[in-house]
Nucleic acid binder design. Structure first.
Length: 479
RNA sequence: CGGGGUGUAGCGCAGCUUGGUAGCGCGUCUCGUUCGGGACGAGAAGGUCGCAGGUUCAAGUCCUGUCACCCCGACCA
């Protein structure tokens, strides 16, 4: 590493030294978030929020394409509604925020700030669903939820977070199961193609499933420090909520029947995932598809005749073809300073334009993922920039795939297992018992991430108790 | 909620042991020179030392309490 680089990276803790601190340094210095006066609540600043907006747009398109409509349900839920489904209350009661007063009046019934909206939505669905002709209802909402967390970290776990929650009701069990898996696949495809994050898909164990669900499915991503991040979940709620909220419809055959339900969600936690999968020692590295700024233009010696005009011309041409471009024409910062700052902010492509380039009718193009520099003839500006954007997106995915592969092992014995979970995912056999799951967690710090859809036969015995194995499971330490 | 750490100018820190009128670097503002990987000179602005009590002639410094943040666990998206 050169002296200059050392000087720069000295501002950020290295990943190797302390990954958590690196994460905190990066999100603050890249201007994604700031701490608010309320414990556990973060301000998402414009640059961070723009990432979320891009995630929203990409996902929302996919939700619409699969027949869903957006709606909005209230923030506050009466205590009695939350308490209707037994497992659900038990799961969420310890972390809900209560509203007990309206103005100066104490409320007759306390309200909770939604930790998730199954209950209030079900109470409405009970009114809206009468006939099989009303089904299915395929609604989604973008909103905030509050869970009173004991320890918080920006994006990964905050007391309030932004998310989307899809809530659907169906006439049949099969339809609900199809929907559950359809949306999981939407998440998987989105993570892979948009966030450049390859995820493992599979089913959660009984212990790890959503409070009130029959089955929970998950997408699990691996971070560069070897810890797993649950990046999205899709639940088959069966008729658990339908029965307590009395959501029934009159079927073709004249019979009154309960609906079958699903719910699914991803949150601003995804932003934490992007940072920890792609980031490097110079800061953020953003996948072009969600980067708030895809191309930054840095003029060199911009006070000189023609430089700024040329830079504006480049800006217009790239803007014209639909790229998110920014021209950094601040006269308070030197070019070198700007290079470092935009790298810290993870902008996928940088274009430099100076007197020398103008003379040669070219620009300098630099990729953020590998810092490769190329000279691009002015006539090929649009083509070469677009292909560079594609290459960065592809490059990040390839790198993430390789990282996950390097950090995934399989284990037949507990020692190999322990080594493996210090590096990443471990594939191992499991007998299916809660006891073994607990014991493994206690001894190794690793939890079951999921029972993947594609299981391998690593062994025929449970890694913990040695009894006959039921499933191959992905284990990891998790966020 | 347990263990550890930190709160002093916008940011990063020193000062605290041994109480005596608050400092450094970066950034900011003005002017000039610069501009191809964190430029340089000159001048200037900016702090009730996290908050609340207490001890003292005197508290950033000592004592008590409290709040917040960070890290590691437990719990959870």
């Amino acid at each position: 590493m050169s002296k200059e680089e050392q000087k720069f990276v000295a501002h950020i803790t290295t990943q190797e030294e302390d990954f958590s601190q690196w994460y905190t340094d990066v999100i603050l210095k890249a201007d994604l978030v700031d701490y608010s006066p309320v414990k556990g609540f973060m301000v998402i600043k414009p640059y961070g929020y723009a990432i979320w907006e891009n995630i929203q747009r990409e996902l929302d398109d996919r939700f619409r394409a699969t027949g869903h409509k957006n709606a909005y349900f209230p923030l506050l839920i009466p205590e009695s509604l939350l308490k209707k489904e037994e497992e659900h209350v038990e799961g969420f009661a310890p972390e809900v925020a209560w509203v007990t007063h309206g103005g100066n009046e104490e409320l007759a019934e306390p309200l909770v700030v939604r930790p998730t909206s199954e209950t209030i939505i079900c109470s409405m669905y009970a009114k809206w669903v009468q006939s099989y002709r009303d089904l299915p209802l395929l609604y989604n909402q973008w909103c905030n939820v509050v869970r009173w967390e004991k320890s918080t970290r920006p994006f990964l776990r905050t007391s309030e977070f932004l998310w989307q929650e899809g809530h659907t009701v169906h006439a049949t069990e099969e339809e609900a199961q199809e929907e559950t898996l359809r949306m999981l696949e939407v998440y998987r495809e989105f993570a892979y193609n948009v966030l450049a994050i390859p995820v493992i898909t599979g089913q959660k164990t009984e212990k790890e499933k959503f409070a009130g669900a029959l089955h929970t499915y998950t997408i699990e991503a691996l971070m560069q420090d070897g810890k797993a991040l649950q990046a999205g979940t899709s639940h088959n709620l069966a008729q658990h909520f339908a029965k307590v909220f009395d959501i029934q419809y009159l079927d073709k055959d004249g019979q009154l029947k309960y609906v079958w339900q699903t719910s699914w969600g991803v949150s601003t936690r995804l932003i934490g995932g992007i940072i920890m999968v792609h980031g490097d020692e110079r800061g953020l590295v953003l996948p072009p598809k969600v980067a708030p700024v895809q191309v930054v233009i840095v003029p060199i010696a911009m006070h000189k005749e023609g430089v700024l005009d040329k830079a504006r011309d480049i800006y217009d041409r790239l803007n014209e073809i639909g790229l998110r471009v920014e021209l950094d024409d601040r006269d308070t910062q030197s070019p070198g300073w700007k290079f470092n700052e935009w790298e810290l902010k993870g902008v996928p492509v940088r274009i430099e334009i100076g007197p020398r380039d103008i003379e040669n009718d070219q620009v300098v193009l630099v990729r953020r993922d590998n810092l490769d520099k190329t000279f691009v003839p002015m006539g090929e500006l649009e083509d070469k920039t677009l292909s560079a954007i594609d290459e960065v997106q592809r490059g990040l995915l390839d790198k993430a795939l390789k990282m996950r592969e390097d950090r995934t092992t399989s284990a037949k014995d507990i020692d190999t297992f322990k080594e493996g979970v210090n590096r990443g995912f471990v594939k191992a056999m499991w007998c299916g018992s809660n006891e073994c799951e607990d014991k493994i967690k206690e001894e190794t710090g690793a939890t079951t991430r999921c029972i993947p859809f594609e299981e391998e036969q690593i062994d025929d015995k449970c890694i913990c108790c040695g009894e006959k194995a039921k499933h191959m499971v992905y284990f990891a330490k998790a966020y």
